[in-house]
Nucleic acid binder design. Sequence first.
DNA 1: TCGATACTAGAACCACGTTCGATAATCTGG
DNA 2: CCAGATTATCGAACGTGGTTCTAGTATCGA
Lengths: 248, 248
Amino acid sequence: MTPPRQRPADRPSRERRRASHSIEAVLGAAVELLDESGEPALTIRGLAGRLGTGVGSVYWYVSGREDLLDRAVDHVLGGVLAEIERHPGTGDPVDELRRMAVTLFDAVVDRPWLGSRFMRNIDTEGNSLRLYEELGRQLLRLDLTPLQRFHAVTAVVGVVVSSAADLGQEPPQAVVDGLVEREEYLGRYATNWRALDPGEYPFLHDIVDAFDGHDDKQQFLAALDLTLNGLRLQAGQRPGPGARTEGP
Amino acid sequence: MTPPRQRPADRPSRERRRASHSIEAVLGAAVELLDESGEPALTIRGLAGRLGTGVGSVYWYVSGREDLLDRAVDHVLGGVLAEIERHPGTGDPVDELRRMAVTLFDAVVDRPWLGSRFMRNIDTEGNSLRLYEELGRQLLRLDLTPLQRFHAVTAVVGVVVSSAADLGQEPPQAVVDGLVEREEYLGRYATNWRALDPGEYPFLHDIVDAFDGHDDKQQFLAALDLTLNGLRLQAGQRPGPGARTEGP
DNA sequence: TCGATACTAGAACCACGTTCGATAATCTGG
DNA sequence: CCAGATTATCGAACGTGGTTCTAGTATCGA
């Protein structure tokens, strides 16, 4: 069978003869662009421009924009993985899992463009898959069924992903341009909510003050701990932080 | 101050004189396109074509593609909200919350293009905000601080969002075209995983069988129940399904 | 009847992803 | 050292899509 289309982008892996460019250079520049101005700012032309080359050259190294994005994600995930693997990981499994999830979250805060892509390619070998394995490995030390373990990792990754999806949504252009303070932008939520009829929106009025000074990380940790406490409960452990301590 | 740009799309709300088109017609057609072929299939030109009109007319009703997408989401969310509000909601608060989350999830299964957009616009009045309120209202009946309530709703919404992000990622074109079975496509994960070195990937080998026959809904419910059990624990309630039953 | 408003329509502009063929640099075998 | 093959570079050109603009048509109030 003929392959669907030629992909010269598969292996420029051998020693390059004339390495004026390289896959590393391409990925590096791509990450720079992403870091500077977010996902939509990564265009093939812009990337070629930064590399001082033509668009055709970029296509020699990657098969398209989607591929480029995937590789850029994998590229930075390498660093996260190293960070996670630095520690021994001998403590309580759930605590370890928590630490890893937090590390992952911090990486997404630094690079919101990781968005919800960063755990998408777990079908083939790559840093996403290794990360997934690393997270799950902690669960092997818990008394759970494989299905429960699978669900647990999914759940924990899900907490990070949903936070990432939050962080990843580009703020309005006015905020990026600095015309409007981020504080003011977020404060608008609270202002709008307070203007609503309390009879119709009792919950929003209940939480509006808590929301007004909200902190993304705290929010993430709260969600994570709910899940982890559910997990501890499932594994027959004592609950961790955030659970009610006083007895019945 | 002059407004940033004129937006005639703000209020075609008064009685239209010649309603050959209407905002309802536009949104209806948009939802049709989205349902048929997913988000990328919704183009302004395509939409205009379906409506038998020009692109300019579309821009009369919406201010751009982003706005169109937001309105389409809000449009279908109206149905979900009605579904959720149909029931009385007098039972256990966490059970009610669970029921709502499941309803929301089911809607996303039906329309994967809701993706992770469907809870994005909670700054202004709209069905997203009402949904958010509806979910949170259940928590008013629990003994929690407002901050805890805020975090809890975020967490529950997060579970739905991350599942939605999973469902929303378009399968490869070959699957859409029916050239490759969805079963086979998913089975590839398991096949690849089994080919990995068990020493390096012990976790993947542990769960691969569980993963192979995995069901999206089951997966969602598992994550949801972990979170909800964490919440019950926080509120001083007895745990629900999925928690270990035998006492110490 | 006349102007104003609401709405239709599509040409035109621009940015982008992608393809393609021409070309050059480098390697390999002889 | 010389061909031919391989590896890599480059930008013109194509198609698609979002958005803007301008010209036009219908409907209403006065």
